[in-house]
Structures are given as C-alpha cells and as structure tokens.
Design a protein around this nucleic acid. Structure first.
Lengths: 224, 224
DNA sequence: AATACATAGATTGTATACAATGATACAGAA
DNA sequence: TTCTGTATCATTGTATACAATCTATGTATT
C-alpha cells in the first residue's frame, strides 16, 4: 500500500540527489546560507563532492519549496521571508491546524495518542529545567504527531511545509524560553481535547495556539 | 520589486525546462497521462525534442507539485487522486478560500474588483446559453482573481496548488451544467460582500461555496 | 568625462556518455 | 513443476562536455 505522494516523504534521503537536497535545505534553515545569498551550482557540487547535475535537480525542488528562487540564466538565491510572510503563514496555519486537530480527534491511533501524552509530559520536565534544545525538538514533534494523526496526506503535507518554513523564526522564539511553558500548557489542552474526542474544542484550541504563538513572536520583536 | 518566490510564477515558461514542465503538467491535467501511468524520461524527451536532462528536472518539480511520484531507480508515475484526497482538498480549501475572501476584501484593487464583476456578469450570460467551455474558464478565473486580490503570496500559492489539483474533477463537474448557475449565484454573493467590504460575510460565503461545490461532486457521483 | 561597444570570463542551460540499478527471461537443480 | 541463480536488457542516476547567456572590464569615440 503506502501511496507515496510527495517527494519529501519518499525518503530518498539516501540517494545522491536526496542527500544534496536535504543538505542544502538544512543549510538554509540553519542559517548557513542567508537571505539573498547566491548559490552557485559548481561551488556546492564541489563542497558535497558531486557534479552539478544532482545539485541542479535539488535546486528545482528547493525552488518549489519556496526556499530559493531561480532567475533563469542568472542564478539561485535564498528566498527572503518577510515579516508579512510570517504573519500570513501563522494565519493560514491557524486555520489548518484547527482542521488538523479536528481530524486528528477522529483518526488518532493508540500509539500516537500515547506519544502525544508523553510529549507533553516530557516537555514540562524540560521546561522546568530550561533545556531549550529539547523543548524545541518536542514542540516540533508535537505538531508533527498531530499532522500524522489527522490521517490526511494532503493536509499533512501542507502543514509540514508551512511548519518548516518558519523553522528559523521558531527556533529563536523557543530559545527565548519565556513562552515555552505557556505554549506547552496549550499543547496539553489540545491533547486533552483530542483524548476526550472533542473535535470542535481541539480545533478551537489549536487555532488559538497558533494566534498566541504569533503574538509572542511579535511581542519579542523577532520580526525585523 | 516583484519578489518572485515560487517557481511557477517565475514564468520561465519560455525556457526549455519551463516548457517541458508545463507541457507534461497540462498532459496530466488534461488526462493524456492517467493515474498510475509510467512516464519514461527518454520517451518524453524524444516526443518534445529535448534530451533527458530538462525532462528530469521537470519531473522533480512535478513530483513536489504532487502530480507524479518518483520511485528512485525505478520510474515516475502519475499520482492517483483518491476520493478521500478530493474531499480533504475541498475541506482545506473551504478554510483557505474563506481566509482569502476576507483578505481580498481588505486588499482588492479597483481593476481586480472590476474584473470580478465582469466575470460574474459574463458567467451568467454563458450559463444561460449553456456554453460549458466558457463557464469553466470563468469559474477558474473567478477564484484566481480572488487569490491574486488577497495580496498574500503564501496563500495565493497554496490555493493555486489545490485549485489545480482538482482541475480534472472540476472540469467534469462544470460540464454537467446543472450546478453552474447555482455556483455563479454564490460567486455573485461573494463578490458583493467583497465590494461592500464585509470581510466576515465574504469569508463565510466562500467557505459555504466550497462545501456546496463538494456536495455537488458527491451527488453527481463523480468520485469513483 | 561620459557613453557606447567589444571582448573575456564566469555561470547557467542542454546534450551526451558512462555507471548503477532494477526487471525480465531463461536455464538448471530440487 | 517450482524455485533459484544468472545473464541480458531497459531505465534511471551521475558526470562531463559543449552551447548559450550574462557580467564586468577596458577601450574607443564623442
């Protein structure tokens, strides 16, 4: 079975092109390549020990993911995310995470429910200790569990795209620490609503969670 | 200005790779290549008079768009859209088109508003005459105008993706004719709400419009 | 000095050649 | 017969070669 619809889920992470693709993506998300940087095929190919061909193919995919944009016959440039983009993404996510939470309520498996509970529990522990690294990782994972639990390849794919898109920003936010406990409280409430099979409440809570997250980013002045 | 974020808007429709990409995409959307068909690089390259290189690059993009999926070392296959996918897409679109209508209310330009009014007016004319071809085209365009009017590259990109994704189905639906006048009435109401700057109402109406469109597809038994 | 043009270098775009992988068919053994 | 291994072929994956395009520099002309 396992209809593999989307490339980043085909997990060809071990083919050459796949590795190149993921490497460049990580380098962009982690800030090695910054906004408006120009990426040269030959240079990157040399760095990774491959020819231009797989690099070019990776570029095409990165472009569709919105991480770079290519000007024909000229070059590939790291895409800038404006503060308006971030705002738009959070508003879009507010809608979609709501839908996702609702569907997750209907389709979540035992194992997923359990992982979600563990996640919330563990996050509280690390929040108390101030372990920012683990908090960030658990926060990410919480949302991914929900994406997977909604049992919709289409929605999962969209949300993962947006989620990743604001990765850079989110990393900074969570490093700030202050919000992490508030955020985790919201996770807990969403989790409980899902567990009690109250789809409408889960939907509402997930929406609010996104709006709060965005407010937090604005307050911290993390956008330009 | 004109930050060109997404490849399909870079309109490199005139480069070789761009032409190949759009050609294959159209062939899939118009049904020349059907679900589960295998696409061979060499064959398509020969058909279009180009080498495998641009074909391969086009494949990578089509994969991320979700129109084909690639099994490493094996081949490229036209993606199947299940009836559940269609349902999911319409539910997602219901959320996003609502948001879009709301934002369009805030940002629509004079020219866009005028084109939208013309669109509704013309569609009524063609609906009366039973011109299915023009109706389909105007229906498409109505939504695109709204996507452009919302002034959000992120949302526009997402919605265009989904919109295109159900193109095959929509074509059949509209060919049925019956719903076209009901659908256009809904367009008119959305248009009026936008014109009167009533964002909330536009949002609500756009959502309902999607749900009705989906109901219609189900009733007609167009899904498997 | 300022502008237009020409030329050289760098970079991307495309085609081709070769390597690696997977599918198929057939032969032989259990 | 059925299973297994091998050889062959078709197809994809990657590297390289060549063509086209853009950028920059320098020169000539006004």
């Amino acid at each position: 079975m396992s209809d593999k619809f989307f490339s980043d889920e085909i997990s060809d992470k071990y083919s050459l092109r796949g590795r190149v693709f993921h490497k460049i993506r990580d380098d962009i998300l982690n800030g090695k390549y910054k906004e408006h940087d120009e990426l040269r095929e030959a240079a990157i190919g040399e760095e990774l020990g491959v020819s231009r061909t797989p690099v070019r193919e990776a570029f095409r995919q990165l472009e569709l993911e919105g991480l770079i944009h290519i000007v024909p016959n000229k070059g590939a440039y790291v895409t800038g995310i404006t503060s308006k983009d971030v705002r738009d993404i959070y508003m879009i996510r507010a809608q979609l995470e709501g839908l996702c939470a609702k569907w997750a309520t209907e389709h979540i498996s035992e194992a997923q429910m359990q992982e979600m509970e563990e996640n919330v529990y563990l996050a509280e522990f690390h929040a108390a200790k101030g372990h920012t690294e683990q908090i960030a990782s658990l926060d990410n994972r919480f949302h991914e569990i929900m994406y997977e639990a909604c049992a919709s390849k289409m929605l999962e794919h969209s949300l993962k795209d947006f989620h990743q898109y604001v990765y850079r920003i989110r990393k900074q936010t969570l490093a700030q620490g202050a919000r992490s406990s508030a955020s985790n409280d919201e996770h807990r409430k969403i989790m409980e609503a899902i567990k009690e099979k109250d789809g409408e409440r889960a939907c509402e809570l997930a929406k609010i969670h996104m709006l709060n997250a965005y407010d937090n980013i604005c307050k911290k002045g993390l956008l330009d």
